[in-house]
């Protein structure tokens, strides 16, 4: 990660390049986590993550700070790429999704193991939109304002949606136990 976006023979990076490099450093794993949580397919998530960063890099001049943070802008691009992937799946062959984090450490306590199994079952009961909110909030760590920007709704609306989704997930987990 030390030489990201800076080839050895090139001059010092511009402010924009430095900003994008910082964005890449801080968001790489978060973007993958969000996309993977939305698609539930690690292979597709890798492709979409790479495509999202490529798109963002080529459109970096189109970023407008007045419309939100650079991180929200990046996740908006990643979201579009992920939704394109979902559309492609519907048009073509249904992908067989890989289970996410199927393994549980052997030393994990029984209580924790049971709780997380219930969580996975609860996640299965969420809709795609709700899973997306979970991924944005808990996997990518976006703030409510950033989530609102990514899914193009108001901040308070985003907060209510997140709240409802969490409530639904908690109920689903309780039912699964």
């Amino acid at each position: 990660m030390n030489d990201v976006l800076t080839a050895p023979a090139q001059a010092a990076p511009t402010d924009a390049e430095a900003a994008f490099e910082e964005l890449y450093r801080s968001s790489r794993d978060d973007v993958f986590a969000y996309v993977s949580g939305l698609l539930r397919d690690r292979s597709a998530a890798e492709d979409v993550t790479a495509a999202a960063f490529e798109r963002a890099y080529r459109r970096s001049s189109s970023f407008d700070p007045a419309r939100g943070s650079m991180r929200a802008w990046l996740f908006g691009i990643a979201r579009n790429a992920a939704l394109d992937e979902l559309r492609r799946r519907k048009r073509h062959v249904e992908m067989t999704g890989e289970p996410v984090a199927e393994t549980t450490p052997a030393e994990e306590e029984a209580e924790v193991a049971m709780r997380r199994a219930a969580l996975r079952q609860g996640m299965e009961k969420l809709s795609a939109r709700e899973r997306e909110l979970v991924a944005l909030k808990f996997f990518a760590g976006l703030t409510t304002a950033e989530i609102a920007s990514v899914i193009s709704v108001g901040e308070r609306a985003a907060a209510m949606r997140v709240h409802r989704t969490i409530e639904k997930l908690r109920r689903a987990c309780d039912e699964a136990r």
Partner: peptide, 15 residues
């Protein structure tokens, strides 16, 4: 582009 399915024509964003 890197990725598990890179170059296979089915990359997620390359729809």
């Amino acid at each position: 582009r890197p990725g598990a399915r890179a170059g296979g024509g089915g990359a997620g964003a390359n729809t």
